[in-house]
Design a binder for these strands. Structure first.
Lengths: 351, 351
DNA sequence: AGGTACTGTGGGAGCGCTCCCACAAGTGAT
DNA sequence: ATCACTTGTGGGAGCGCTCCCACAGTACCT
């Protein structure tokens, strides 16, 4: 008969049905074994497993996805061009954390870049087709529509770095506030008193929190906050240099700078050099991220390290939990959904 | 009845059937429109398209995959740990080329790392499940079993850098032979006559071809090949330095070095410096890859550039063609399946 | 007029699973 | 002995598509 053409009648990949026949059991039982259900006797399980091994059975993902309405895949969405992704160790570290967690799973990770408009449209289409069970979102700006799209499609998602204090999505972040505090407290403990701050882009929530940490660390130490010591930056090197020049013009007597990123600090260092200030003798410098730049700067830069790999791991765990919760309503004890991980100050010669 | 639980009866995603009803046509017709079959009248097509738009219909990939026995996804497999992937611009560039080609397609790209044994087992499982229609393989060593697995599973695959002259898989490569020739010819044209070569790992076919190019360029110019001017390296910096020291000990009168990679050249430069040789005054140096290292070396390094982005693009095109050929046997005019792309010598201060 | 094409269309069958209902068999209380 | 559970099992129905056969309609030959 073979009404359906040559499409793999016999000789193709074995099916559940064939495994069942071989093991002398029903289809349902094989399915239970494959999916690790406890409701199978040991003898039956062994028989099925033997048949699976003999036949070299591998489940057909498409069939499973269709029947069970899930894909066993999640996406790591990077709303940036590839170039930035590769340039910043942030992503690589995060990927490592996610990958480690995934190893214990059957889940597949997709890496999706959505830097250009075209790519974003493709992504929207992709998500609308529900081709993934959940989404990991990194490096999202305040006005990004992606999180709302995800919410509307009811796709579980976890974001790294909440967009605001009122973030609705499950989020994982490092303690920007505490990290900034530790940087400032460190400078204070080194006897510095006129500590400036070059901020990050203030439409990024984390950057705001770093400013908050800076302010309150000073206040708690009994210092007044001088607004002339705060200068906006934008996470870039040029921005850091410009900000540093402005600060020096306004408060030539400053003796320390806390920059919102290592790249910013590199710019600040440049400007300080040009003005003939020695680091750390005249001005102490502290950065943020503890990236490769920090180690290779001259002098090596004291910096606040974020546990990025851990963040990736936690994001994954939270996402998997959310996905599991949408399935058969086995409500498990969910962790609180805004995780904040501690930072660590790495002291080097610049302070 | 809803025997199947709450699973999206109405209010869920629209199905083909619903679109058909709305457009007042049959299921088959809608399928034809969705898949761009020409066997549909313009009026019908318009009606279906309207219904699709109104309902916001998006095809269910799983159902399609099950019925049509394809996945509309391909994998870029990197048999290396993530770390190396991120460290080398090679991969990033290749990904860019592949991504560009993919934009015109419905295909989804998966990035799969198979650095550890564990990851490799997962990958094998993944491939056995036929979760992708084809595979792009980069950076494969001579003894890698992956290509054979792919062949056995009858999964279309394209490899970057054939494993040998007898490579059976479709491959895309740059002209290692010609690239090496151009480097040597350049050095000859600069008046150098005692040109040494530090090779790459000779179990990599491309490295062998570079040696061939080196030899024949000299021979064709009427020079004898002195085997004492050829020293094995391994693509690493230390290997390059070691090889350079050996060469200097053996032939202290050499006046040029062609290294099989920029990293190797960086090692060689180090060793030359230690021996007090000036570059290029005493010894001219040429590398291979034209990576970031080449530009940042002191002095900037003359290097052979490979069109990596183009290679990615070509690999993709070849793979898509192979996949298409396995489907309804619309045999299209296949390009020959061993593509070799030209290289370009980038001249800088080191030579 | 009858034949032979081709075009456009509808819908049955089937892809390989999961989910769940039905039911047999065993266990322990009444 | 009866009832009430529990445990293990088989298999029907259905997931949403694609493929293909069947057939109506039209066009162009003999």
């Amino acid at each position: 008969m073979a009404s359906h053409g040559a499409r793999g009648r016999s000789g193709g990949r074995p099916t559940l049905e064939e495994v069942a026949a071989r093991a002398g059991v029903g289809r349902g039982t094989v399915s239970r074994v494959i999916n690790g259900s406890p409701r199978v006797s040991d003898a039956t399980r062994a028989a099925v497993e033997a048949a699976v091994a003999e036949l070299g059975y591998v489940p057909n993902t498409a069939a499973r996805a269709l029947a069970a309405n899930r894909t066993d895949a999640i996406a790591l969405v990077v709303p940036e061009p590839e170039t930035r992704f590769f340039a910043e160790p942030y992503f690589s570290d995060m990927l490592k954390g996610v990958g480690a967690g995934l190893a214990d799973t059957e889940m597949q990770l997709l890496l999706i870049f959505a830097g250009s408009d075209r790519e974003r449209r493709r992504l929207a289409q992709y998500l609308a087709a529900h081709r993934v069970d959940g989404v990991l979102l990194v490096s999202v700006h305040a006005d990004d529509p992606l999180p709302d799209l995800l919410a509307q499609l009811e796709i579980p998602a976890v974001i790294s770095g909440p967009r605001s204090a009122a973030e609705t999505l499950t989020s994982v972040d490092s303690d920007n506030y505490g990290g900034a505090r530790s940087a400032v407290e460190h400078l204070l403990s080194r006897g510095r008193t006129r500590i400036a701050h070059i901020t990050g882009r203030l439409d990024v929530y984390g950057a705001q929190r770093r400013v908050d940490g800076y302010r309150e660390a000073l206040r708690d130490a009994g210092h007044e906050v001088d607004e002339r010591l705060i200068e906006p930056g934008d996470f870039t090197e040029e921005g850091g240099a410009r900000a540093m020049r402005n600060l020096l013009a306004r408060r030539p007597d400053l003796d320390a700078v806390f920059a919102a990123s290592d790249v910013t600090a590199a710019g600040a260092r440049q400007a300080l050099r040009e003005e003939g200030r020695r680091i750390p003798d005249d001005v102490a410098l502290v950065g943020y991220d503890d990236s490769a730049i920090a180690r290779h700067l001259d002098p090596p830069l004291t910096s606040v390290r974020q546990p990025i790999e851990d963040m990736g791991r936690r994001m994954l765990d939270l996402l998997l939990a959310e996905i599991a919760d949408r399935r058969p309503a086995v409500s498990r004890g969910l962790e609180r959904s805004q995780v904040v991980l501690p930072t660590e100050l790495v002291t080097r010669a610049s302070s």
